[in-house]
């Protein structure tokens, strides 16, 4: 017999040490957020890989569609003046 209701999917983010950002490391199933945290500890930090864990139910994540990458990221493509190398400076200016 199938279970009444399947455990939802959670995305797991782990901060490996203070000073670094949380990084996505995978997903797992759990009945609620507390269980997701405990399962994440057992699945993703068995060797001290983390000092902090975030769990987010997967259905709450909105992802961009790679098929639209052209339009989505187009605005950044013709703005070379956002990069320091765009500006001409005399060689005498050593550090800037």
């Amino acid at each position: 017999m199938m279970s009444v209701k399947n455990w939802p999917l959670w995305e797991i983010f782990v901060r490996s040490k203070n000073g670094l950002e949380h990084r996505h490391c995978g997903s797992l199933h759990a009945a609620d957020a507390d269980m997701a945290l405990e399962n994440a500890r057992d699945v993703y930090t068995r060797r001290n890989e983390g000092v902090s864990i975030w769990v987010v139910e997967s259905k709450h994540i909105t992802a961009s569609n790679p098929e639209n990458n052209g339009e989505l990221f187009e605005p950044a493509q013709d703005k070379v003046y956002r990069h320091p190398t765009f500006y001409d400076l005399p060689d005498e200016v050593k550090h800037m």
């Binding site: 017999m1 279970s3 009444v4 209701k5 455990w7 009945a31 609620d32 269980m35």
Partner: peptide, 12 residues
Amino acid sequence: GEWVRDAAMAYA
């Protein structure tokens, strides 16, 4: 394990 999974879901 089915009843455990169901119980966890009911509790949540």
